[in-house]
């Protein structure tokens, strides 16, 4: 392992000690922590929302109008965390590409996408994507035509964003569950196309 191993190991030990002390004093319980960890490890499935919007035009309209309410039709909720959040769906078109960041910290639609990837939380992404989005997107392998307008959305504690990617060409015959398999996390953040 790298030099970081010892460092990580000592932090891991400190985290265990703090957890043990809080459990001993009854401030948190081991069962409660395990339940939260289990939920975090369960893959989030926001792709279902996008696939449904691709095949159901009426749902798509509801999603773009009020995403917070629309996702509840599919069993998701923005009210499951420590406090309610609002969700806004951003529609990619041939003319507009949306990409999401949280410049201040790491606000992210965990209910739909699970815990965020490390790059989303990095200073490099947070600082640069608002200044030079095309350069950042090209580092993800996404080269957009000059004619495509790029819109960068800065998430907050109260408002989270979900990108509705363009449906890939040649998928007209695919069933909804097969469409969902094409949809990537980065596609729903806006750092990839499908």
């Amino acid at each position: 392992m790298s030099e970081g191993h010892h460092h990580d190991g000592s932090i891991a030990q400190q985290v265990r000690e703090v957890e043990a002390e809080l459990e001993a004093s009854g401030i948190v319980s081991a069962a409660e922590l395990e339940a939260i960890l289990d939920a975090m490890r369960t893959p989030a499935d926001g792709a279902r929302v996008v696939a449904h919007a691709w095949v159901d035009a009426a749902f798509r309209e509801r999603l773009l109008g009020d995403a917070t309410a629309a996702i509840e039709e599919l069993g998701y909720s923005m009210h499951g965390g420590v406090r309610p959040q609002m969700l806004v769906a951003l529609e990619n078109t041939e003319a507009v590409h949306n990409v999401v960041v949280c410049t201040l910290c790491s606000c992210y639609p965990i209910a739909l996408l699970g815990p965020s990837p490390p790059w989303y939380k990095s200073e490099a992404y947070r600082s640069r994507v608002v200044r030079e989005p095309r350069a950042v997107l090209s580092e993800f392998g996404l080269e957009l035509a000059e004619t495509v307008e790029v819109r960068v959305w800065d998430a907050s504690a109260e408002t989270r964003y979900l990108v509705l990617p363009l449906r890939p060409r040649g998928t007209d015959e695919l069933a909804e569950e097969h469409l969902a398999a094409l949809i990537t996390r980065n596609g729903m953040i806006g750092t990839a196309s499908l």
Partner: peptide
């Protein structure tokens, strides 16, 4: 923490799997 638009943080590190 208010880094939006700042320069000097270098290139992104994006790996294939990127576990949370």
């Amino acid at each position: 923490n208010d880094v939006g638009g700042m320069e000097g943080f270098g290139a992104l590190s994006v790996s294939e799997s990127d576990p949370p």
